[in-house]
Design a protein around this nucleic acid. Sequence first.
RNA 1: CGGGAAGUGGCGCAGCUUGGUAGCGCACCUGGUUUGGGACCAGGGGGCCGCGGGUUCGAAUCCCGCCUUCCCGACCA
Length: 470
Amino acid sequence: MASPNVLTPQAEDFPKWYQDVVAKAEMADNGPVRGTMVIRPYGYAIWERMVAEVDQRIKKTGAQNAYFPLFIPQSYLAREAEHIEGFSPELAVVTIAGGEELAEPIVVRPTSETVIGEYMAKWVQSHRDLPLLLNQWANVVRWELRPRLFLRSSEFLWQEGHTAHASAEDASSYALRIHTEVYNDFLTSILAVPTLLGIKPPSERFAGATNTMTCEGMMRDGKALQMATSHELGQNFAKAFDIVFQNDAGESAHCFTTSWGASTRMVGGLIMAHGDDNGLVVPPRLAPIQVVILPVREGDEAVDAACAQLAATLEANEVRVTLDKGRGSFGRRTTDWEIKGVPLRLEVGPRDLAEGLVTMVRRDTNEKISVALDAVAGAISHALGAMQADMLAAATARRDDRITTVSTVAEAIEASQNGFARLSWSLVTPEIEKQLKGEALTVRCLQRADGSIPLSDTEDGLTCIIAKSY
RNA sequence: CGGGAAGUGGCGCAGCUUGGUAGCGCACCUGGUUUGGGACCAGGGGGCCGCGGGUUCGAAUCCCGCCUUCCCGACCA
């Protein structure tokens, strides 16, 4: 256990705890311009792991990576009325470049539906060109009034997928496939964050979408965080950008498009879904460092040799392992790795070594197990697997404890002070949504009674999740 | 963008009321003793006090403007 005063306890001040973890785990710093973020090597290593896992899943669905420009003509955004209306307040616009006032202002992309739409129109001629499945990893800029590291920064990193299809059904099923096979699978099986899948109410839809799906996660303070999102755009952008194809009967038709994204916000979600008073807890399958080998004292030849041997063995078993430098007190080094959330520590000291043992400690439970030197590889592999499963189970239990099914709006407001309220969607009128807003609450998503994703907000028998959110 | 709080070595803070040129803890460097849950002793280094203006013989301290951060709201991945 970390000594007191390393981090602000969660129960005392959750936002302060979050900042402490971001700083002390060396995840990120504020940038010099308000809302900007410097991602430090450890934070970036975690992001890179997310990128690798998500990218691999995206490619499995058939999408290909490409890259589109940062700068977008302002007129492009204006072509889709809802889109420009939704994004205008958040845009950073370049009006001077090369020392001259520009004839047409250039927008720094807040998202790339518009530029990509322009090129889709160029590239799509026939139904044989469809579906067109594109993805890009990029930075985007949305000027934020209230920034928070990872959760809401004015510039952030993400992946944005953009696809064009011949039919509404094809677009819809692809967006759903991304939602479940890419996002939800990544979130649950790698990030160990259980999700509630649903659609956004019309008031919360992406600007220009006909349907927005969301993966809502619950943080340890009971607030909701949208971890990823997937949109059906209907023919809105196809009409604005003339994305037209000839079908097999030789007739012209507008495509149906989708877009979907997941961002560095997931790093914030990781911190807040799993972190505890001792710091970050990174699930093993995500962790850039899965095991740290920690010599109890420096300069002990037997210990150093055993550490080197263990590192080699684990590397050969494809475990992502780091050898602690052994400088400074044992307690200090232990605490530092604990704050970084490394799943397993292997403590190697002369006492254990004399008996042919090392001590393995799990970050999530602090459970200490003595392991024989020649059994380390197997024990590590087993512990990594167990910890991954236990973290998802624990997060799921915490979440379910905090979801209350209620039957009135007043009860929903009460129940959502410390968690999620589940209420019949039929009780939520636009006036009620306003009332909720006054209580700092929003409808996070709509679900069918069985928790599955509805096709539309007008289906009968839907429930909604009401919560505070980040 | 509105309402609150705050910016002083890397981090956390004191000093400001009653102007006189900066201090503490942690971190850092050197040496030694240590090392099984944030070690100890000794000796060191580092700050034009967020930025810009003003008042004054003199400003961390008083006045004005701006920037940044945090909390609460409206907007959002």
